[in-house]
């Protein structure tokens, strides 16, 4: 059987008396989009922080490509292949689109300690950046200041930055947040094609997007996964309807 690219095993994290993640085991297989849904305060952000290295779990472990990475930090996990996008775009807004992607390319070579050669004169970095921009469809915006991009384009740019690092798995935190219906539809199509590049762990509130994209969905409520299954299984789950989607969903 295929091994999961990314997996958590019985992750636990509490803040005082509050159990933010309680015994969470979740996995991500090649080519799939695994969505994590849940109401506000369910523990999604805490889960992502533990997967990406921003928070140390109290118990349990995180594995990337079968290797235990629980005790490593964000930097190491990024180098190991976790490509993360943020709920609120974390980009260098004063810089151009190309410069943001070049940052990913610099991260990929693993050393920013080059002081005298202009980054734009480095053919290998430029070609990596240009390739990533082309894959997300932003090649015509290379010289645009990032702050001038639309919200959806910023999402695409975040993915382009992650692509330069040749990620083994994407972890995306609410990529649809703030997008209109049209923008959400475009990004859904884009993410659908991206799964072949690397599987995606998708934390999302936009249920239309989740149902259109996800191969599997895990439902997180009060720090616990109450159900994992296909879109149809989740839609028909009584527990999920009661806890999250509402009785009529």
């Amino acid at each position: 059987m295929t091994e999961p690219i990314l997996a958590t095993h019985s992750l636990q994290k509490s803040f005082g008396a509050l159990m933010a993640t309680d015994d969470i085991s979740i996995d991500l297989y090649p080519g799939e989009i695994h969505a994590v849904i849940g109401p506000n305060g369910a523990g999604k952000s805490t889960l992502i922080a533990q997967i990406c290295g921003g928070l140390k779990p109290d118990a349990g472990r995180v594995e990337l490509l079968g290797k235990d990475v629980t005790l490593t930090n964000t930097l190491t996990r990024a180098k190991a292949g976790i490509g993360r996008t943020f709920q609120i775009s974390a980009l260098a807004m004063e810089d151009t689109v190309l410069q943001n992607v070049l940052l990913g390319a610099v991260g990929d070579i693993g050393s920013p300690w080059r002081f005298l050669r202009p980054v734009l004169n480095d053919g290998s970095l430029r070609s990596k950046a240009a390739d990533a921009l082309k894959r997300v469809g932003l090649q015509d915006h290379a010289a645009t200041r990032t702050s001038d991009l639309s919200h959806g384009q910023r999402r695409q740019l975040e993915v382009a930055v992650a692509l330069t690092l040749k990620p083994k798995a994407f972890v995306m935190d609410e990529p649809m947040a703030g997008l209109g219906a049209e923008g959400s539809k475009t990004l859904t199509g884009f993410l659908d094609g991206l799964r072949e590049e690397a599987p995606i762990l998708l934390v999302e509130h936009d249920m239309d997007a989740v149902f259109a994209l996800a191969d599997r969905i895990s439902v997180l409520v009060y720090g616990k996964i109450i159900e994992t299954g296909t879109v149809d299984q989740i839609k028909s789950s009584k527990a999920v309807r009661e806890a999250y989607l509402g009785g009529d969903a």
């Binding site: 930097l75 993360r84 004063e94 810089d95």
Partner: peptide, 19 residues
Amino acid sequence: GLALNAARQAPQRVQTVGL
């Protein structure tokens, strides 16, 4: 300079590219 400039504007992003 590129990485430093990004570290000023978006340190989270710099971390997630492994720097």
